[in-house]
Design a protein around this nucleic acid. Structure first.
Lengths: 215, 215
DNA sequence: GCACTTATTGGCGCCTTGTCAATAGGTTCG
DNA sequence: CGAACCTATTGACAAGGCGCCAATAAGTGC
């Protein structure tokens, strides 16, 4: 280790970015509890107090890391060709798998929501991400103008999102599913969800509201 | 507070059970980091050191809590009538929803740790639970003797399990889906997964292995 | 070269956890 | 009925982590 390379002064944004980069890597490697702010500060070559200054504390830093992770899978549904819904969905799934495969480590860290125990703030950040993802699916399926049962549909898509995450884990971590398996499974499932399950749920809902409430 | 009710001596099993009960409640309420062993010890009316003695430490206690939570949804697929697969699955789903509805709080706390990843031990415990759940599904679907692609199938069912957990959260926490919605959605999805998606993935797999590897 | 802003530091106090020898509840045996 | 014994239970100590804040010094403009 060098004889304490003299103190350097950076723009707040740069410093924040630098610390964040280190934090992302270290939280990705260990657990929230197993990584100390001292570790991060040392690794980044700054005083521990600086973390508190910029992020309010360990918790704030962690939340920032999670927030940044959620932005990854954004451009998976841009400029889809105007063909059938099935094909558009298939392409969307494929693009997602591309992004996931390329950013393997970051993706796993992002979806392996590592906070120990559920936390209101983390929960909210993750929820925002799910919301965006749901929008993209609706867009790809050309169903953005659905009104009846819109909230139910979005909820179903969010649930589907959990299956997507779990499936990528099976693929990347356990190796039990191939990328091709995921293509078939994820495309087929979302298509069936949108075109069969959702309408069926709608019908059941209508029947229930006219026949009087069932159990 | 009483004048420090005199020290009582219990059987190890009883004491462990008592501490575990308190820990379950408190970890359910807060975060792993936000709950201190001191809190738990006070609430349980014992010395903090006793926790270390019985569980090895905070971590051990937490793992035990998680392990105990995973046992909840066991008897959802016992004694299913010998009718169609569809009906058996529907009944299984319905029974699961019963259990979930009755043990609402405990269920939510139990599936919360889905957001825990990262930690090898916790991961393993959760994985065991998923494995059991997958067995139950195969049993209900009368597909216990599948051999070709068995591991793929199990992996898909595990992924489906994640969707189940997410859907129950939508139902119980956010109120965006009704119980009836869940019935329709979960039954339809698993049926489609078993009877359409899985065979399709198998075909794709076979085609790939004879035509030479695709990208 | 000098003031001035503010990024950065380093140390203090509190809290939490793991360890371990000492204590005392309950039981058994003379 | 009392003494010896086993072990459940305690309490204090030390190491380490985190938040806080006044002091310091790196740049910048005059």
């Amino acid at each position: 280790m060098q004889p304490a390379a003299r103190r350097r002064r950076l723009e707040p944004d740069q410093r924040k970015a630098q610390i964040l980069a280190v934090a992302r890597r270290m939280f990705g490697a260990g657990t929230y509890a197993s990584v100390s702010t001292t570790d991060i500060a040392n690794e980044a070559g700054v005083a521990r107090g600086l973390i508190n200054h910029y992020f309010g504390g360990k918790r704030g830093l962690y939340l920032e890391v999670v927030r940044q992770m959620m932005v990854v899978p954004a451009p998976a549904t841009e400029n889809l060709p105007m063909t059938t819904v099935e094909e558009r969905l298939a392409i969307g799934v494929d693009r997602l798998l591309d992004v996931v495969e390329r950013n393997r480590q970051m993706w796993l860290t992002a979806i392996g929501p590592e906070a120990i125990g559920r936390d209101a703030d983390v929960e909210r950040i993750l929820a925002e991400g799910d919301e965006i993802a749901a929008d993209r699916v609706l867009e790809a399926a050309m169903m953005t103008d659905i009104v009846e049962g819109r909230e139910q549909l979005r909820a179903m898509i969010r649930s589907y999102g959990s299956m997507v995450r779990a499936a990528t884990r099976e693929w990347l971590v356990r190796g039990t599913l191939s990328r091709q398996d995921l293509r078939v499974m994820l495309t087929g499932s979302i298509l069936h969800l949108l075109e069969v399950t959702f309408p069926a749920a709608l019908r059941a809902r209508r029947a229930a509201s006219t026949d009087g409430e069932p159990s």
